[in-house]
Amino acid sequence: MTPSQDDPERARRFREAALPYLDDVYTLARYLLRNPADAEDAVQECYLRALKHFDTYRGPQMKPWLFAILRNVCHAEFARRAGAPVKALDETPGAAEQAPLWQESAETPEGAVLRERDASAIQRLIDTLAEPFRETFVLREINDLSYREIAEAAGVPVGTVMSRLARARAMLRTAWLAQEETKP
């Protein structure tokens, strides 16, 4: 018997393997799309695709595999609404996207202390990071993937993961400190 969409055993295995990561997948979707409604749609689409391609899944790490599918879904969504301004922390819509990709870490005063902030303030700061730095940063610091798992999920070499992460941290630090100056 060939496995099919409605094979109950296959459905059971898929549920057990994939559903425990629903919160992880939703978290990544929220950071990639920066919008709860879009994130919900993307996650649902991600799980449908994952089920469809479950036969091609070669374990044992389910999380990076689901993330890779989610990225695909999200990028299709980006393509669909290309040009639509994305709400950023700055007044200028889309400023995060136009920001230089690399801000020298020398711009941030060494030894400056990052004041602790509540979760929603940090989330807004992360939202200002440009792709693909935001994605790499979230996969590492929030989804808790190893460099190798990030490379697998994002389909890039580990070296790229490392350089993106370094830049993401430099940019986030700059934004974090800048915000502290404006809001003492």
Binding site: L19, L22, T27, P36, Q44, E141
Partner: peptide
């Protein structure tokens, strides 16, 4: 800080419903 999000219950139900029954 807890920076994760929790999937809304409605989303979980929608996905469960979309999956083939066990």
């Amino acid at each position: 800080a807890d920076l994760t999000f929790k999937a809304p219950a409605a989303l979980r139900e929608r996905i469960e419903a979309a999956l083939p029954p066990v």
